[in-house]
Write a protein that binds this DNA or RNA. Sequence first.
DNA 1: ACTGGCACTCTTCCCACCTGAGTGCCAGTG
DNA 2: CACTGGCACTCAGGTGGGAAGAGTGCCAGT
Lengths: 339, 339
Amino acid sequence: MLEDRKLDVLRAIVEDYVSTQEPVGSKALVERHNLGVSPATIRNDMAALEDEGYIAQPHTSAGRIPTDKGYRLFVDRLSTVKPLSVPERRAIQTFLDGALDLDDIVARTVRLLAQLTRQVAVVQYPSLSRSSVRHVELVPMTTSRLLVVLITTTGRVEQRLVEAPVEVGEHLLGELRAQLNASTVGVRLPDAVARLSGLPERFGAEERPVVAAVLSALLDSLVEQHEDRVVLGGTANLARFGPDFPFSIRPVLEALEEQIVLLRLLGEATDPSGITVRIGAENAHEGLSTTSIVSVGYGTENEVLAKLGVLGPTRMDYPGTMGAVRAVARYVGKIVGEG
Amino acid sequence: MLEDRKLDVLRAIVEDYVSTQEPVGSKALVERHNLGVSPATIRNDMAALEDEGYIAQPHTSAGRIPTDKGYRLFVDRLSTVKPLSVPERRAIQTFLDGALDLDDIVARTVRLLAQLTRQVAVVQYPSLSRSSVRHVELVPMTTSRLLVVLITTTGRVEQRLVEAPVEVGEHLLGELRAQLNASTVGVRLPDAVARLSGLPERFGAEERPVVAAVLSALLDSLVEQHEDRVVLGGTANLARFGPDFPFSIRPVLEALEEQIVLLRLLGEATDPSGITVRIGAENAHEGLSTTSIVSVGYGTENEVLAKLGVLGPTRMDYPGTMGAVRAVARYVGKIVGEG
DNA sequence: ACTGGCACTCTTCCCACCTGAGTGCCAGTG
DNA sequence: CACTGGCACTCAGGTGGGAAGAGTGCCAGT
């Protein structure tokens, strides 16, 4: 049973707690928000909210703070994403427009997000699997060593070193390069894998081992979905998280060091189109139980290339953070889409 | 006037303080080290050491802790680099031998260093300026857009996107590619710049603008010394630095986010051949005044390709840290040298 | 030159106390 | 029936006073 006023009270509690970082009591609540009722009434509502698990008391004689469940309700029903101001939008645009290449775009994005939200920013590189092959290049390093270079439409360059079982002649190299490009250029990465299956048969028995070695490296580049690169920024903001946070900062830093963990967190995003917010224990990772993650996909109009987001204490400014994340994702998507 | 025993006392103080993290008094000192004299005598020595600025008292009735100057003396004259144990060496080797490519080597190195020293590890990418050109590739993206790819002997791949002023024909592309490679392959990057100066003249007036654009991008890749990439690891160890550290953790994290700062810190290394230790305020960067940096160059026998090191509290185990850093640098140097 | 002894200085810990914020509950009111 | 004012209760946090303990500096003695 959630009547309107109780929801108002919850909203007020979340807002106050987020801004003051201190448990909020009934008296302060009626003073700062015109709820039109007395503290006693609010107390009743608060008691009910506590029974239902939306708020909690750190200790008996303190105010209330929202629980994960309370934040959840707040995000789902009580808040609207706060759009950025015009100057902010302009700043984003000019900052990102200055980017030189993909690395630079990602680097700038992560810094931007961290600055804007004053939290820890996470940006995933645009996915390879959804892009297609622009070019394959074979470069001889020594007579029996080759560098296989894969260039994709998103501008990424993947490289693999190949130890050829025998010496590789200039002619074979040229032929192989031509064949590889003919089979894969313009093809989506996952599809390119299939296109290459019949390739060895087009070569002589002597050349097969070399072809196989090169192919294996190339397939490796293609398959190993390099959705696995993420970039971090704004870790210094962790220190801002609060005076009690130093104790819990350790596990957070540890989690952030594990790329796999970060990827899983971004990947777990449930809402494919919109912003996903995972609050506290919803992040299936101990050590992040007092943090929330706001993430969103970015890319072209038709497809999501990768995700980005920020990580902060559960007591974060959700509307503002969501606004910033959404805005940045849009601009980055536009830029990546063009380039 | 530094007699032998006073040096012994200083060494003992540093060792005890590093291991206990607590100010060390005269009584504890004689108990834990067999100095052969009474606490009172030690007290006299300590008073002298304090006068000379090697140790200090946090407050009147506390033991002494080493000052930056004390650590300096300890590192310079009182300690010997502690070699790693055989299992440790073996672990390093097997861990690094599994690396796939340069990125992987660097990533593994940074993790290894962080784990071994339990501090923050910093690894700089092998310098481009000391490597030479392996291959230059031009890849058409659209009719007027080219990707210029530079591959170096250290296995690094640099890419630049070029907006050609006019359409670029297949023939010009091939010709330009051939000329570029002919002029630069096998040449040191800085020298390659000079080799390219006369190139535009070999092309017709119509083609000049395209050539100039490509050249500009390539020169950019060559000149922009990509000694500027550093990778970090083990930041979670910052939380281990001590109970008082949370307050000073903020500026440290901020410093670590600035690649430029890190590069300067690594670059400042004075001793070109051996290990450099910069203690506390010696790191000309406020916020790092309670940290020390142990760094060393790595590379082939003949040349230093880049640097790596760790950052930790001034109260670190210098002999152990120096041993780990040195050992890792040797193995990485070997691997990079081979590859 | 070293040592034992001693007085002195501080930090730190503990305990007791008080204050104040905040609550829950209840009786009363529109 | 929903709201309100009042009131007793609880408990975290701050304050202050010892008491304990670690460590020092100094001095007289060997």
